[in-house]
Design a binder for these strands. Structure first.
Lengths: 115, 115
DNA sequence: TTCATATATCCGAATATATGAATATAACTA
DNA sequence: TAGTTATATTCATATATTCGGATATATGAA
């Protein structure tokens, strides 16, 4: 990742990778931690943690540590770089594979709350 | 470029490369041929022709042959894939480096018309 | 402390991408 | 036809990216 890249290109690059895009769409539902995403997308830990580090470095997401957990959320001010980006991501929720992802997220959050 | 990629990811990938993004923003002004873009961006022929082939294969642009020239334009129906993408590209025209590119384009088109 | 858990980072291999130079193709012109 | 111009494609190479597994770090609990 070229540090000198235009901010616009860099955000587009983040969204050009399938897993990162699916994670970004999941985050339109709210804050999630790495283990939530691992579970919902059935991915090994480093395949979630690494993308999150990239998303964070591009400023597309913001992290917040809470004890052992690190919660990630979309950085709403990304809309200053790509106008209405967060609305675009919300629209993707009605398409595959994002729709199925978000459905699994909803189910997962239910069982998680019951514990 | 993975042919199986989601269409959304593929479009974002197209825009994640600086030259392709600058070309896409130029095309918000209207149809351009390869030699116009070469001139305006001061790039060698294959550094314009190759990106155009990729932009075309992703359906972000449409080409039209007119004799020896091939004219490219933005595919407006791309907004079905990425909502309001063409408006986003238009907004980039007020930022650098796109603003300077579009200024050079305007100047270039003036001299071209005078010939 | 020591252990367990959540996350981050590193490593090496595989794959993808971008680039300039050279060559090919397509369409017009003399 | 031969030559010219505009564009496309190929080739070799340099660079970037991704991925799973291994290891490191950070935090809280016993």
């Amino acid at each position: 990742m070229n540090i000198l890249a235009q901010q616009e290109s860099l955000i587009f690059k983040m969204l050009s990778e399938e897993i990162r895009l699916r994670i970004a769409v999941l985050l339109t539902e709210g804050e999630l931690c790495v283990c939530d995403i691992m579970e919902v997308l059935s991915l090994p830990q480093s395949s979630v943690s690494r993308p999150m580090a990239k998303l964070k470095s591009s400023q597309l997401v913001i992290d917040r540590r809470d004890g052992r957990w690190v919660h990630y959320r979309l950085n709403e001010s990304i809309n200053d770089i790509i106008p209405s980006l967060s609305e675009i991501l919300v629209q993707f929720r009605t398409r595959q594979p994002y729709q199925a992802d978000n459905k699994r997220l909803t189910e997962y959050l239910l069982t998680k709350n019951c514990q």
